[in-house]
Simulated scan of single mutants.
Amino acid sequence: MGTLSLNDCKEVRIPAPWGHISGRWYGNRRDRPILAIHGWLDNLGTFDRLIPLLPDYIGILCIDLPGHGRSSHLPPGMHYSIYEFVYIIPRVMHEYGWKKVSLLGHSLGGIISFFYAGLAPHTVDMVISLDILLSNPLRDAELSIKKVAQAMEKHLIEEDRRDEASLHEPPSYTLSELCKALAEGSMNSVTPELAKHLLYRQVTKSELYPDRFYFSRDGRIKFYHTIHTERGLAAELARRIGRKPYLIIKGSKSPYVGVECEEPMSILGQNNPHFEFYEVPGGTHHVHLHAAEECARYIVPFIQHHRPPVLTSWSLTGKDLEPSSKEENRSCYSKL
């Protein structure tokens, strides 16, 4: 058995009432894959450095959340929230007829995975969470109210901006400028050198200026409504998840797996030989991008233990089965 290739993938479009959910299905397309969900303002390109390190007998279906990457934006007048994002998991399951789901999530994708696993634990067989478990609570009630009010106002401003953009092309920039902007927006969790993995799915080439691009993701996602999980709710969700295989990888320089996670993590690990937690030294929030090899050291054996090879999906001689279509196997990993 070898490792997955970024060139061995199939572009998918999962229908939704508002349009479609875009994705890429890497590797094995005969068996149920692992469903990979990216973080806030990112897209499926966030897994580009991790995918080639994972075992090739498994399939990985990476999706762009609504408003992100190449997925459809929600209709005008609608508001993004974590509630809508959680519903994406059963929608994908329904599309492919899955009874169970294996989840790999980073940041927002990890929060979505935690909530879904707590809501429907009977449908989840394992979770891999990258530098997150749940959203950090805002302990100051006044500050919390102020932030929600500001987001509401900015959301309305963004809708007006969308109307304007439908008449005129948005401001465009060079790829170098966009890489720097993305790095700054991530607090340098994504370096300018790594930004290319995210940019190719969230920018559009300018029709007015050669060699310039503009962001094509939905600006309203910057003001989505998250869930600041109360301790009691987080604990109950963790109890409902029970003894499911659960892997959490934290970047040592990241603040996202802090004291608020101690109780639910303790519950997840209680009498649970399938719970694992590791910290990657020097890792920032996008630990799977800049420290992909270190993350794979923990992810690969976890996958092999909880999603071992199915004899029908690989050969005893070590040779992979031929894909059903050579056309599917041609490179779908095109850069700008």
Rank of each mutant, 00 (worst) to 15 (best):
H305L: 13
H225Y: 14
H225I: 13
Y214W: 15
H228G: 09
S266D: 07
V203Q: 00
L268N: 01
C179H: 02
Y224H: 13
G232V: 10
E184Q: 12
P255F: 08
Y209V: 14
K253H: 10
K244C: 12
E294Q: 13
L208Q: 12
I267T: 01
K196E: 12
A181G: 09
R307C: 10
A183C: 10
R201K: 11
R231C: 06
D211Q: 12
H197Y: 15
F277G: 01
L208M: 11
R307S: 09
A183M: 07
Y246H: 05
P281C: 10
A291K: 15
E193Q: 14
T229M: 15
Y246K: 01
H228Q: 14
V280Y: 06
S266T: 11
H286S: 05
F223N: 12
E263A: 10
K250M: 10
Y246M: 04
N188Y: 15
S189H: 04
V203H: 00
K196Y: 08
S186P: 00
E293R: 15
S254I: 02
S206Q: 06
A235E: 14
S189D: 09
I241F: 07
P210L: 04
E276S: 11
Y256E: 06
A181T: 09
E294M: 11
P255Y: 08
R201Q: 09
R212G: 03
F215S: 03
Y214I: 04
H286V: 04
R201P: 01
G251I: 04
S216W: 05
E262A: 13
Y246N: 03
G258E: 08
R201I: 02
V257I: 14
L194D: 13
I303V: 11
T204R: 15
P273E: 13
L178H: 00
H306Q: 01
P245F: 01
K196L: 11
R243T: 11
N271M: 07
P301C: 07
I303Q: 02
E262W: 13
R217D: 03
K222M: 12
G282L: 10
K253N: 11
S254N: 01
E293S: 12
V287D: 03
Y278W: 11
Y298I: 03
L237E: 02
E262F: 14
H197L: 07
S186N: 11
F213P: 00
V203A: 00
Y298E: 08
I249P: 01
R231E: 13
A195W: 00
L268I: 04
H228R: 15
A183F: 06
E177C: 03
R201C: 03
V287E: 04
E279Q: 13
P255W: 08
A234D: 02
I267K: 01
H306C: 03
K250D: 07
G251C: 06
G185F: 07
G269I: 01
G242F: 04
F302I: 04
G219A: 09
M265A: 07
N272V: 01
S189K: 00
Y214F: 15
A234R: 02
F215E: 01
R217V: 03
P255S: 06
I249C: 04
H197Q: 08
P210E: 07
L199T: 00
P210A: 08
Y278R: 13
R231F: 08
K222P: 00
G269K: 00
A234H: 03
G219Y: 11
F213V: 00
M187G: 12
K250V: 03
V257A: 04
I241Y: 05
H274Y: 10
A292K: 06
S254H: 02
R240T: 06
A296R: 03
P210H: 05
